[in-house]
Design a protein around this nucleic acid. Sequence first.
RNA 1: GGGCGGAUAGCUCAGCGGGAGAGCAUCGGCCUUACAAGCCGGGGGUCGCAGGUUCAAAUCCUGUUCCGCCUACCA
Length: 875
Amino acid sequence: MPKGYEPQEVEKKWYKYWEESGLFRAQAPSPDKPYCIVIPPPNVTGSLHMGHALNNTLQDILCRYKRMQGYNVLWQPGTDHAGIATQNVVERDLASKGLTRHQVGRDKFIELVWEWKEKYGGVILNQLKRLGCSCDWSRERFTMDEGLSRAVREVFVRLYEEGLIYRGDYIINWCPRCRTALADLEVEHEEMDSHLFYIRYPFQDREGSLTVATTRPETLLGDTAVAVNPEDKRYADLEGAKVILPILNRPLPVIRDRYVDKAFGTGALKITPAHDINDFEIGNTHHLERIRVIGEDGRMNEFAGPYNGMDRFECRERILDDLKKAGLLEKIEPYRNAVGHCYRCKNMIEPLLSKQWFVKVAPLAEKAVRAVKEGQTRILPRNWELVYDEWMNNIKDWCISRQIWWGHRIPAWYCETCGEVLVAKEDPEICDKCGSKNPVQENDVLDTWFSSALWPFSTLGWPDATEELKTFYPTTAMVTGFDILFFWVARMMMMGIHFMKDVPFRDVYIHALVRDAQGKKMSKSKGNVIDPLQVMGRFGTDAFRFTLAALAAQGRDIKLAEDKIEGYRHFVNKIWNSARLVLMNLNENEKPEEIELSLADRWVLSRLHQVCGEVTNALDEYRFNDGAGICYQFFWHEFCDWYLEMSKGGLYSSDPSIRRTTTAVLLKALKTVLKLLHPFMPFVTEEIWQRLPETEESIMVTQFPEASDLPCDEPALREMNVIMGAVTGIRNIRGEMNIPPAKKLDVLIDSPAAADRAVLENHLAYIRSLAGVESVRVDSSIPKPEASATAVFGPNQVHVVLKGLIDFEEEKKRIKKEIKKVEKDYEISTNKLSNPQFMEKAPEEIVESVKEKMESMRQQLEKLKRNLIFFDSLH
RNA sequence: GGGCGGAUAGCUCAGCGGGAGAGCAUCGGCCUUACAAGCCGGGGGUCGCAGGUUCAAAUCCUGUUCCGCCUACCA
């Protein structure tokens, strides 16, 4: 067995073995309890980043844990077709050959995207395998698969028939770069320094002008009114008045609408119904004309008069110039406002009047809110339920049509003869209404999130009534980041409830974001990304996974730095070496006969009993950091530091039956702790497992340890406490007196209670080996030797004989320090007990525990002080 | 504008009503035959600030400051 753990080969070997042995496969139907997680499908264009790594590590921990508990686990994998992103990639590819998608044509372009997908679409899935993900790859799905496309059509048609999908003219968010409409969610608002321009609109039939304030002067070309608040006394005489639109010299009515804020700007608002959502609504109530002056390419159009063909930003500058020349620009104020940008390409969004398809979400959202309120789905940590509620209750209709080619083409046809709109699951040959043979399909495709919203049931075979649906829906848990709570989780809730009549998952676990060491978001442009693949290459996958789990505290982002991963690599290596110790001492094949367990054996099994319970609780509650922390603490500082060290006596014993007993318990304990660690660290645990005797199967399919399988030996825990107290006390003295470990010590243990004395006397070997002691005597009331240092543990004290080694002043200092420490605590307890209100109001057990604590501190202080007096009397 | 989260040891963070914790870093002693990627020991904090509730507050409440995030149609 190599001295250090070498992850690379091991990882490849076992992953291949697990996959080929079908250990990731789920059964449908199955008599076992189901456990199902559908993966948040990564984009086909994606490659593994830290967010994926964390997200999938957590899912894999849950799946491996549940699988070991005997559940029929389905971790459903797949990828998302990622409409705009994928189209962009292939378009860039074309551009490098000097081509545009329009030149190759729609059908050919889609063919090219498919080719690209076949070639590169599996990259991220292979990277997930590298992470150790135990997905059932035989069930891999893609949102553009035949089956999932059928689900999309079914949903679209049914929602349309139910009146929940409609088509209409509204203000939508238009990205002039991507040349498509976007949903409100896909717009990122960013605070920017801009200006508030005060522009004079001269009155038509009187002197003077009305000044309006705007941040977007170029839209004035599309103004069809100016609005004031009906209660604004300044403008009370403007009833029926008209103003002249600058530059285009169009007369505009002055209208009154309560929407206008009297206090903002001049209290007069220019109304551009075709380019602003509020103006659009005001325009509706006042039946105003809608004039679109900016085209889909972001340039001014023919309604923009002299600015026709000009870019929207250039147009702004020119209009300001022209207004200034005409004396119509009153003033400019600096102003900060939030401006929408495309989440894909970061270009400025143009609110535009356009005919699009929408989902009427309010009725769907209502049920989705209720499902969470009633606890059919829990969102964890709970505070995200508030966020979810807030968003769902203020939800607006969802614009689902996109003017791109890659995606699910909307199943709507327009009859070229009579104009009828046909929405159908099967492509219609003839028009239902007029019978003509030329229905033409809608060009637009659906928002990618439309198909993602169906993912929890479409991947399981819906709309067919499959065994998978019966077995695994509703799924158990959804693990995801909060950044797609609205985009995805909320929409899955709505669709799941509507079409499956039940929520898509019982738990939604929202995890943190992975940031860099300074807490900044990782991004390519900042150059602060840590590449998970590189990390895995350098430190091993297990160290990486364990780091993520250990840092994944609920409600706080993860600040990741390489030195942390390095730290956990040391842990992996520690595990490796503990296994080496055990394996190097396994030269006897015989089974142990009648086993008499040592204290160390009894203790470690009892501690394992407790630890199993704690880890189980932690994982059941998605407290990954606690689970990892408990394993780390126990394995390193109890299993290795104490148990392995104590076992050495038995391992090197000349009595073969003691050796056999020791190795048997060592093996049992090691196997148990490996199983506990396996969900976190699948590779190293499997590698060690397979090297241990009597492990034919993979550790993956063994039973996760249960507390009830292990003894809880309270006396062992208590007795061990006494031994640890003695050893720690002696080590303390050694450390503080700077006595080298090679120097063997003589100690006298003064132990008043017979029970403790018996424990100590029966386990002198432990004290000898762990504390480096030569001779040791245990008795009641042993007088303190002249040259000695003393440590107090519980009611006992240990005198370390230090002939010629002791520095009396040093020892006095040490004792004084100790006295001070205890006295501080003692005082706090005294104060409590002398407080009548505490005695009266505090619960009985608290009062008791304070009394007990005080009594033990009193004994401790007494001894410490006696020791101090002893040294003083020497002079 | 509304909402959420954070502020605890030099750093990164647990703890969230009854004795201030971990990892890393630091200091001292050790190549003790699984591991120097290690072992043993030490030092280090009026738990952001100000009030309040309570017998008892890092923990609950109110206010406040500074960070971070989400959300929103005041042009």
